[in-house]
Simulated scan of single mutants.
Amino acid sequence: MIQIYPYDSEGFFLGQPETLYPDPGTGQYKIPENSTSIPPVKDGQGMWRPWFDSEKQEWFEKADQNYKDSLKSPADPPSAVDQLKAQSAETMVQLAEAQNLIESQAKMIADLFLMLAEGGEA
């Protein structure tokens, strides 16, 4: 029994190897058309979009960067905990800004009262 790697009419790997058993009468393996016993790897690495050159009996990588990017899954949405952390951080920033504003207004009011107490005009 051997593994064979089928490819379509354009030479692209179909994605799943198949098991091939020897002919019971001859004991020989008869590899079907559009299949090879050569695994779709290059330099020991798998390929994104393997293409088989039947004349050279070799697999080639045919995926460009756009193709590779299209296969990547979108980033996972933030979890509820992460969303709450972000909201909490935003609320803390808003609270700090509000406290600064209150302090500056309190200083302004204190300065006005001081000016009035000293008999000055605002």
Rank of each mutant, 00 (worst) to 15 (best):
M1S: 08
P6T: 04
P6E: 12
P6M: 13
E10R: 05
L14I: 12
L14D: 04
Q16G: 03
P17A: 01
E18M: 09
P22C: 04
D23N: 15
P24A: 10
G25C: 05
Q28K: 14
P32G: 05
P39K: 13
P39L: 04
G44P: 13
G44L: 08
R49W: 13
W51A: 04
F52L: 04
D53P: 07
S54K: 11
F60N: 14
K62W: 06
K62M: 09
D64T: 04
Q65P: 00
Y67C: 09
Y67L: 09
P74W: 01
P74Q: 02
A75G: 05
D76Q: 09
A80C: 02
V81D: 03
V81G: 02
V81F: 12
Q83W: 00
Q87Y: 03
S88E: 07
E90P: 05
V93I: 15
E97G: 11
E97W: 00
A98V: 03
N100P: 01
L101F: 10
L101C: 08
L101M: 02
I102Y: 00
S104Y: 00
A106C: 06
A106T: 10
K107A: 13
M108N: 12
A110N: 09
L112G: 11
F113Y: 14
L114K: 15
L116M: 05
G119Q: 11
G120W: 01
A122S: 10
